[in-house]
Amino acid sequence: MPLRQKIRALRVRLRLRLKRQRLLWRSFRSRHRLGVVTDRTAQIRRDDILAFACVRNEVVRLPWFLMHHRALGVQHFLFVDNASDDGTRDYLAAQPDCSVWHTGASYKAARFGLDWVTWLLMHYGHGHWCLTLDADEAFIYPDHDTRPLRALTDWLDARGRPVFGALMLDMFPKGPLDAQTYAPGDDPFAILRWFDADNYTVLMKPLLRCLWVQGGARARMFFASEPRRAPTLNKIPLVRWNRRYAYVNSTHSLMPRELNQMHDAGGRPIAAGVLLHSKFLHTIIDKSREEKARREHFGDAEAFEAYYDGLISNPDLWHEGACEYAGWRQLVALGLMPAVDWA
C-alpha cells in the first residue's frame, strides 16, 4: 500500500476509535439519568443470555414479548423505562427475571435510548451473549422452535463469531390497522400475519463496513417518494458483548466496525435471523399521534410528519402480493433468512 493510502487508513481508524470512545463516554455519563426501580442483576449467572430494551408505554406488548424470549432461553431482562404512564414500570418490576431502571430524560438526547442501554450493556453485559431489542421486535432464527438460543450461541462460539445479524421484517394486518384489536398476551403475529417477501434493497456503507437494507411495507407505503429516508432494516441484535463495543445507530451497526462484517464476500450465506416487527398493531394510530407531537423519534422530525400522517390515517398496508407468514422455514425458503449451517 502506498504511504498516502496507509496514512489515510490510519486516520480513518483513529477517527472511528475516537467516535467509539465518545459514544462510550456519553453512555457512561448517562448512567446518572437512570434511577433504579428493581435491581435483580444479582441473579445473573456467568453464562446467562441477557436481553436489553428501552421501553415507553408498552404494557400491551410486554407480556407476549417476555413470553416469547423467555421461551427462547433469555435468562434475564434489563429494561430502561422512559417515562411510561400506562403501568409498564410496575408490570416489569413485578416480573421475577427483570431488572428495571427508569428515566424521564429525553429519548432523543440519549441517542434514542441507546446511551442508556449501552451503559447497561457495558455494566452488566460484558462477556454475556446479549440480545438488544425493542418491545415491538420478536427475535427468531432457523430452528428456533426446537433449539434454544443457547444452542445458537454455542454454535456461534464454536465458530468464533461474536455477532448474529437479523433482518427486521415489518409485519402488517389485512385491512385497516385498527380493524383488529390486540389483547395483551396474545400472539401479535396472529393479527400481523403478512409481510413483503422481497422488495428489499441492499447498499454498502463503506465507512462502517456495514450493509444498509431498506424496503418492506413501510418503504412501499410511506417512502415511495423519498426512498432514502425509508427505515433501515438490518440489525445486529445478538452480540457476545464486550464493554468496549458500542452500537452506533440503533442496533443497525456496531463499533469496532469489524463486527459489522457478517456477510460472506464469496456469496455464501452466513447465518442470520429475523426480527418480526409488531409495530402495526391497532395501538399504532394513537401512538403515532403522540409521537408526532412529541418529536422524539427522528433526527429530522419534520421530514417524518408525512409518515406519521400516513399512519394516523389508518391505512391498509395489505395487498394481494403480500406473503402470509408460515414460520421460519418459509423465511428460509424465501431467502429472507439464511439457514444456519446445522442440520
Binding site: M204, D264, A272, G335
Partner: peptide, 9 residues
C-alpha cells in the same frame, strides 16, 4: 439472492 447476510462483492 441479495440480503443482509448474503451480499456478495
Amino acid at each position: 439472492l441479495y440480503m443482509q447476510s448474503r451480499f456478495p462483492h
